[in-house]
Write a protein that binds this DNA or RNA. Sequence first.
RNA 1: GCUGGCGUAGCUCAAUCGGUAGAGCAGCUGAUUUGUAAUCAGCCGGUUGAGGGUUCGACUCCCUCCGCUAGCUCCA
Length: 644
Amino acid sequence: MIRITLPDGSQKEFDHPATVSEIAAAIGRRLAKEALVGRVDGRLVDLSHVVPQDARVEILTGDAPEGVEILRHSTSHLMAQAVKQLFPEAQVTIGPAVENGFYYDFAYKRPFTLEDLTAIEGRMKELVRQDLPVARNEMPRDEAVAFFRSQGEEYKARLIEEIPADQTISLYRQGDFIDLCRGPHVPSTGKLGAFKLQRVAGAYWRGDSRNEQLQRIYGTAWPNQKALDAYLHFLEEAEKRDHRRLGKELDLFSLQDEAGGGLVFWHPMGSRIRGVIESFWKERHTAAGYEMLHTPHMANLELWRTSGHTEFYAESMFRPLTVDEQQYQIRPMNCPFHILIYKDRLRSYRELPIRWAELGTVYRYEMSGVLHGLFRVRGFTQDDAHIFCREDQIEQEIQAILDLTMEILSTYGFKHFDVYLSTRPDKAVGSDAIWERATTALRNAISARGLAFVEDVGGGAFYGPKIDVKITDAIGRKWQCSTIQLDFNLPERFDITYVGDDGERRRPIMIHRALMGSLERFFGILVEHFEGRFPLWLAPVQAAVLTITDAQNDWALAVRDQLRAVGLRVDADTRNEKIGWKIREHTLKKVPYLLIVGDKEKQNGTVSLRARSGQDLGVISAAEAVERLLTESRARRASDQPTP
RNA sequence: GCUGGCGUAGCUCAAUCGGUAGAGCAGCUGAUUUGUAAUCAGCCGGUUGAGGGUUCGACUCCCUCCGCUAGCUCCA
């Protein structure tokens, strides 16, 4: 008798070793139909897997994340089968599930075209209709190598050769197609369906650019058509928000071919927003006990030798230039400069923690192919800060940084934070003891703020553990902006010290931290997050006063000046255009408030207030308008909805 | 850097088989004085990314280069 325990705690008994399918059938017909894979004592297995003894069994469908992942993986195999049928000379390599979909890399004599993709997709649908069973077989490693080599699948053979000789290899067969795969897979091709091939791209064998290039086909796959449609719709939404498009439409910034790739030009409207972001940042940092620094954009290469950048960061740095026989390096980071200020005189333990912040512009060499709008550039400004403190101050400093991070980011409307803690990698500087104590301090600080976190064991930099924070934007995309890194290395390299209460020289701990990361990138994220509809406090033009005819020009200018007098960014539109046209133009520019003035308003000293949403907020006095906009702007409300 | 895709007016796009490069918007000029998302007319605007080749003739076909763009870690 075999006893199967289900996730709800209930049990089923079988008088023989049952397959996962049989167990699913015993639970319910619908489940048996929708089942994709099973989990037996925590291990994912095929439905055909025989459960030989008492076990905990879970049946997974397309509703479970693991089920979807299997679905995607199986779809990549389906694609490989279709490709092999249409292009028998193509060799298969690897084809995993990835976020939202899958890919498969092929070695083929020529790149696949979009027409090929259509044909492949058509063949995949046909294979789904045939509902071919997907069967698992096992074979000794050497036999598998010989088998794939005989099939002309050199890459597969090479992959298997890397597997230990004594290990048994699993193969999956569906119709005429056999692939090496760990599995598990869906039981038959008929279980697949909602997929779409998206693009073809080059990818290197083993991800190494020294190796030969393969043809990678990307696709997306979902449990049902509805989910696929929703995802395709999401992609369209994301495209509408593209900061490169909105940046042009709203005249915020540009990248200039003549200047070179990855160098950002902030136009007046973008600069206004950046100015607001910077003042807010400075205000909160000053309140949190930071001092502001300004340091040079380049320095003698010797400094970068001391810091170790020439050794460990060389490939991201621009080549040095020669000045008066000396080599100068344009900076890829700000930290060495802050250290020089620290070193400029003797420091006492009484001064610690020292918190120094700088909106520091840095230049890093990025390969031309990776440049992307504001998200990946070669020159950008970090909201950088360095904290020099004693070891016993780490925990409270990290807590304070987390507080500041949450405060600043939530003001932009980011409410959900994913926190990651990365610990000691194999190669690291500093004693195990200091790593242990520092990592514990980070862990404590995160917990003290009631935050959940994921621990990335061994994911820290060689010089210290770190905390990364990801934010989630308005359409659910995650972005890592904030990073808090402990550094046991630079204080050592620069031999910085402070005098302790016992008169002895001691080594401070250094914390690097950036909340927004790169202002350029953060700004790009904001553009996409708000879809260009910046909340009042950020909007480059917060309000526009529109006249009906030129008879109201004097009143419009007076209203504009009243609003400007309290610091609001306001324009008057006195052009000889119809009001409908003016409203359209300013609405397309996403101006939060329009103040319309005709003869009635002029006579009564009022304005007619219209929100960006189109909502009519009624006629109010100019003084009320000033009060209302000023209050909302000062509140830094992140919503783009007007005050009710 | 590598592989694919794309480069036509400031922007978005058209141009049949290789046969005189076109439209809307923007800009400029003028008319219109207008009440909550498009008033009308005229004008200006191009070495079709650059260079070379094939051809009687090239936006179109071929070659080289430049730029943009998608991708180039993720359990075989």
